[in-house]
C-alpha cells in the first residue's frame, strides 16, 4: 500500500533556512545542508527547498546547497523559487534535484509547464499554488496568488490546477495563503476539494502546528502528503514522532 508522505520544507534565503508568518516576518531556522541531513536521518520521505529570495545570487547559493545535500541525502529533493525557464530547471536537476516546483512563472507563462514536462517528464514538474480564500456567499472559492503570495490574480485555484495538470504537471504542492505560518491547521476544505478533483498527488501545505493537523490533512483533507516547516525546524516534534502518531491512528507511513 502506498504510504502517506511527510515532507519538511526548507525556505532558504542567503544560504540560511528561514520561516515566516503569511509569507512575512522571517526568523532564522538553521543551515540547510545540516537540517536536510538531520531530516534524512529521521526518515523524512522527501525534502522541499524553496528559494524565497529568488534572486540570481540566491539561485547560485541554492545550487551549492542542493549539490551538498544530494551527496548525503538519498530521498527525493524538490527545488523551487524563481525558476523561470527550462534552463533554470535543468540547472537544478543537474545539481541533484529530482523535481522542480514552479509557481508565479507558471501563472505568467503556462507553456513553461508543458515545456518542462516534455523535456524532463511530468514526474519532475510540481505545480505550486498559493491559494487565498475568497469571500463569497455561495460555494467556497480560492484564488491563486503569485509573487510569494503578495499578488492576488483572480484566477480560480482549482481550475488552474486542472489546467496545469493537462499541460503536464505531475504533482500539486498546495499552500493555503490564509493558514500558512499560523500553526492552527491546514485549510482542510481547500485540501479536500483539490485532492478529490485532481488526478495527480496533492501535497498539503500551510498551517501545521501540531501532529493532529498532519493527521487531518491526510484524512479529512485526503492529501497524499503533508508538508510542514516550523514544527520540525524548531523541534516541536520530530519526523519520527509525527510518523508514530500517524501510524498509531491507522495511517500507512514509512518507518
Amino acid at each position: 500500500m502506498l504510504t502517506k508522505r511527510i515532507i519538511p520544507c526548507l525556505d532558504v534565503t542567503a544560504g540560511r533556512v528561514v520561516k515566516g508568518t503569511s509569507f512575512t516576518e522571517l526568523r532564522d531556522a538553521g543551515d540547510p545542508v545540516e537540517l536536510a541531513a538531520f531530516y534524512y536521518q529521521q526518515d523524512a520521505d522527501e525534502l522541499v527547498f524553496l528559494d524565497i529570495g529568488a534572486t540570481p545570487e540566491g539561485r547560485k547559493t541554492m545550487v551549492e546547497v542542493i549539490e551538498k545535500v544530494a551527496e548525503q541525502v538519498f530521498i527525493p529533493l524538490t527545488v523551487g523559487g524563481g525558476l523561470r525557464s527550462t534552463r533554470d530547471m535543468k540547472l537544478m536537476l543537474e545539481s541533484g534535484a529530482d523535481k522542480i516546483t514552479i509557481n508565479t512563472a507558471a501563472v505568467l507563462n503556462p507553456k513553461l509547464i508543458s515545456e518542462g514536462a516534455k523535456k524532463f517528464g511530468s514526474q519532475c514538474i510540481v505545480l505550486a499554488i498559493d491559494a487565498k480564500r475568497v469571500n463569497s456567499n455561495g460555494a467556497p472559492r480560492w484564488e491563486v496568488c503569485t509573487h510569494g503570495g503578495r499578488k492576488p490574480t483572480g484566477i480560480d485555484a482549482v481550475e488552474w490546477a486542472k489546467k496545469a495538470i493537462e499541460l503536464g504537471a505531475g504533482e500539486v504542492l498546495l499552500t493555503s495563503w490564509d493558514a500558512d505560518g499560523h500553526r492552527s491547521g491546514y485549510d482542510l476544505e481547500l485540501t479536500r476539494i483539490m485532492s478529490e478533483s485532481l488526478p495527480v498527488p496533492v501535497i498539503a501545505s500551510g498551517g501545521a502546528g501540531n501532529l493532529e493537523h498532519l493527521y487531518q490533512a491526510l484524512v479529512v483533507g485526503k492529501a497524499d502528503a503533508a508538508l510542514a516547516a516550523s514544527i520540525f525546524h524548531y523541534r516541536n516534534y520530530s519526523i519520527r514522532q509525527a510518523k508514530d502518531y500517524l501510524a498509531e491512528r491507522g495511517i500507512p507511513v514509512r518507518r
Binding site: M1, L2, R5, D45, S122, G170, E171, P201
Partner: peptide
C-alpha cells in the same frame, strides 16, 4: 488511482 504513482510503497 492517482497517476503518477508517487511515493514509498512496499
Amino acid at each position: 488511482l492517482k497517476v503518477p504513482h508517487i511515493g514509498w510503497n512496499q
